[in-house]
Structures are given as C-alpha cells and as structure tokens.
Design a protein around this nucleic acid. Structure first.
Length: 423
RNA sequence: GGAGAAUUGGCAGAGUGGUCGAAUGCGGCGGUCUUGAAAACCGUUGAGGGUCACACCUCCGGGGGUUCGAAUCCCUCAUUCUCCGCCA
C-alpha cells in the first residue's frame, strides 16, 4: 500500500503515473485525503479528552489519599461523562481509520517511469532476445504427448488421485524435477543467496503482508479449520520473515532463495493455455527475494534480471525479456521484467519468470523498515523473481530437445540428472 | 490430545492497582581520557499517531472486560517451555 503522506505530497504525479496502469485514481485519492483529514480531526478531539481523563484520574488518586472523598466523587462524575464521549469518538476513529485503510488498499502501486503504456501483454516492450529457435524433427510432439511417450509425467493419474492440474512426475520425469530444483538452488547459493525452506501454509497476516489479501483470496487454497492459506509462491513466507522488522542499514542487501511447492486455484483459467504443464494448481518453483535500500533497488532489479538470464543461458533455452506495460503490470509492482522461453512444438513463448521491484509498496504493509545513520526509520524496498518455475521450463526442455533417440538433457543439468537422455 | 508454568524495550530481567513507557545489567550510539585502542567515567538509546516545533495520545504477546485509574485483576485466543499420551 502507498503511504498516506506520499499520496498527499505527490497527488498529481501519482494520478498521472497510475493512468499508465489504466487506473483512474483522482477520485479515490481525493477521498483518501479527505478521510485522513477527518481521521486527524477526530483523533485530536479524542486525544484531548483522554488527556483530560488521565489528569482527572491522577487527581482522584491524590484526593482519596488526602481524604477529600467528596471532591474525588465530583471528579469521578466528570470522568464518567468523558469516558462515554471518548468511547464514541474511539469508535468513530476506528471506523474512519478502517475506511481509510480500505480505500488506500484499493490504490495500486505507482509504476516506474520506464513502464510503457498499454492494455495487455500485446503491448509489453521487448527488451532482449537470445538463443536460436530450434528446428524440430518431423514428427515433433508437444510436451504432453512426450510426457506420455516416455512415461515421465502422468496427468491422468493426477486427475484420478487429486484433480486436474495436479500431475504425477515419474521415473526420469521425477528425477528431472529434482535435478532442476537442485540446479536452481545451487546456482542461487553461488550467487550469494541464503537458502530457506519455508512453511507451505501461512496465516492471514502473512497473506495480507505480501498483498494476496484482501484482494486475491479466490486464488489461494484456504484451510478453513485453521485459517491457513497454501502459499501461491515462496515469496509469501520468505518476504513475511521481515514483517514488523526494523533492519540496520548494514543488513542490506538481504538475498534469500527458497524452493517450494506453489498452490494456485487459477480460478477463471480455461482453454488451450492450460494444457499439460502450461498451468497447474500445484507446481514447483525456486524463488529469489531481496530486501534492499531504496536507493539501490533498481540496480538490484537489473542484477536479478541478469541472474535469471544466466540460468536460461545455461539451460540452452531460447528466451526473451519483456518489460511489462502498465496494463499487464501487477497491482503491487512498480516495474516487472517477464522472461519467456520458446516452446518449440507448441510454437509459443511461455512465461517462466517474473522479476519485480515493489519499491516500498509491500514494505509499507509489512512494516518492513530500516534505520539510517541518523537513527531515522524508513521503509525498505522489496524485490523478487522466479529463478525459476519448473513446469514451463520442463515443457520447453522436452519440446525443444526432442530428437529421434529421445530427449537430450542440457549439459549443465547432466550432473544433476545422472542421465544425458530421456528415452 | 491431557495437565501445569510462562509471554515486559535489541537481549537478560525487575515490576501484582495510581507517582510506570517501565528499575537494573548487557549491548548500541556520542563524549572525556589516550599517539591510537582497550579499560574506566559521563551522557544518550523502543515504536506509532500528532505538531513548524513542543504539548498531548496510543502501545508491556493479540482481542475484549472490570475500575475514577491496569504491565499489574477477570475472560478469551495465540505462542513458548515442562510433564503425560501419540508419533515420522
């Protein structure tokens, strides 16, 4: 969420930039400013009344001790009245504050000036492309057929045991999964990240902290009895490590990596895009998360982008990087780079990673702050990126590397898989 | 799952109805001393709201209550520890 003072001080600029996200903010912002003034006004009156009550309560104590019970009772009468009206004021204040917070929560993060205008992914800006799109053999198959042919992923079995979008990985398919997870983790550790193994369920506060609540409830699996949410990404538990934390400046940069299962209900998805591994309810992902000083967060975003590119290069996959346009940018992000690999048999670019700078938007919700040299506290910046999500990487590897003998494994992975060929 | 104990500032730990946002120690920061450092000594050191700045208000695990007044009493939830049960 944006900070109220930031909104007040940069009203016009915010409205202008949010227009790039196709968000009409003017009215909402006026409302928010009005509510905040209202909040302050009510609080001032309440504070004065509480101050008066506090003073009287102290005097009553003194009066009792000196035996002036009559006077004390008179004061008691006064505090009783004050108590009634301050109770009402406190209720008003709570309501105003709640309304204010709810309204601010409706305002998306302000996009970075480099974010191009646009409505959909068609308007994303291509900024980089690398690798050769492979020429496939004559009877090249999409990955769901290859999965069956080599008996490495069983979608039907998953449907039987759980439901659509929960596949079984088998034999060389299962080993490929493990290989990719270990490869991604080892690479991240070599790049200076600390590995975490997070819980796969989080509580309500954590789901709120990274912005999944109050808005995207429908996207998460929820365990009603214990009020836990299944994580849609390791970003949620890893970033929430720093909820209500005040860091020291020398703690920066914090670089964490975590492998986790990810669970997404994907309500509303349908059609050809969801075939095979393209969209699952449960999948595996290695996520990198950084917490940075505000002055360095964009530098960090670039380094994370370069890091993800290095992974795809090692996997020998043709990829491109796009800068998301305003319309495609998520609610919480200020700037996002998407990585897409070309899946040759489907003849499609598949999104495999999203690297984002949230600036202080998440930090504000999380109350993630740091103390500067003068002892003042400021909000930190948070960033994250997939490095990488497995299913579409697997889809591309299977499709792009298929040949007459089987599916060849890129050399960077062979030490991890223990085999060169899926056959 | 059952029984008991606990939860206070960065940490340790006092505080059982008013003078407590909270003793004391450690740690941190600033200073004196020193060629420099250590030691010693002096000072300072939680967060949020509010204000030009003060004043003032809120916060002692979360929420609710009793009282003129709550860190302190009551209810409730969470967490931690110990014992019993079960168990990878």
């Amino acid at each position: 969420m944006l900070q109220i003072n930031f909104i007040k001080e940069n009203k016009e600029e915010i409205i202008r930039l949010l227009a790039i996200k196709n968000f009409k903010a003017a009215e909402l912002i006026e409302e928010v400013i009005l509510l905040d003034d209202q909040r302050k006004g009510t609080q001032k009156i309440l504070d004065d009344q509480l101050a008066e009550s506090n003073k009287l309560a102290k005097q009553i104590g003194v009066l009792y001790k000196s035996g002036e019970a009559e006077k004390a009772n008179e004061y008691k009468q006064k505090t009783a009245e004050l108590k009634q009206s301050s109770k009402k004021l406190a209720d008003d204040l709570a309501l105003t504050s709640k309304t204010l917070t709810d309204k601010i929560l409706e305002i998306p993060n302000v996009p970075h000036p480099s974010v191009p205008a646009g409505k959909s992914d068609a308007d994303n800006e291509l900024i980089y492309e690398e690798g050769e799109i492979p020429a496939l053999i004559d009877d090249a198959k999409p990955h769901w057929d290859l999965a069956k042919k080599y008996d490495i992923i069983d979608f039907d079995l998953g449907s039987k045991v759980t439901g659509a979008g929960f596949p079984f990985y088998k034999n060389q398919g299962a080993r490929l999964q493990r290989a990719l997870i270990n490869f991604f983790l080892d690479e991240a550790i070599a790049a200076g990240y600390s590995e975490y193994q997070p819980p796969l369920f989080v509580n309500e506060d954590s789901a709120y902290g990274t912005g999944q609540l109050p808005d995207k409830e429908g996207q998460m699996y929820h365990i009603g009895e214990d009020n836990f949410y299944l994580i849609p990404t390791a970003e949620v538990p890893i970033t929430n490590i720093y909820r209500k934390v005040i860091l020291k400046e020398e703690d920066f940069p914090i670089k964490n990596v975590a492998y986790s299962n990810c669970f997404r209900r994907e309500a509303g998805s349908y059609g050809k895009d969801v075939r095979g591994l393209n969209r699952l309810h449960q999948f595996d992902k290695v996520e990198i998360v950084q917490v940075q000083h505000p002055e360095k967060s964009y530098e960090t975003l670039e380094s994370m982008k370069d890091y993800v590119a290095s992974l795809l290069r090692k996997l020998e996959l043709p990829f491109r990087i796009v800068r998301l346009c305003g319309g495609d940018l998520s609610f919480t992000s200020a700037l996002t780079y998407d990585f897409e690999v070309f899946s040759a048999a489907q003849k499609r670019w598949l999104e495999v990673s999203s690297v984002s700078n949230f600036e202080n938007f998440q930090a504000n919700r999380l109350k993630l702050r740091f103390k500067d040299k003068d002892g003042k506290t400021h909000l930190a910046h948070t960033l994250n990126g997939s490095a990488l999500a497995l299913p579409r990487i697997v889809a591309a590897l299977l499709e792009n590397n298929q040949n007459a003998e089987g599916i060849s494994i890129p050399s960077a992975l062979r030490n991890y898989t223990g085999f060169d060929l899926i056959s």
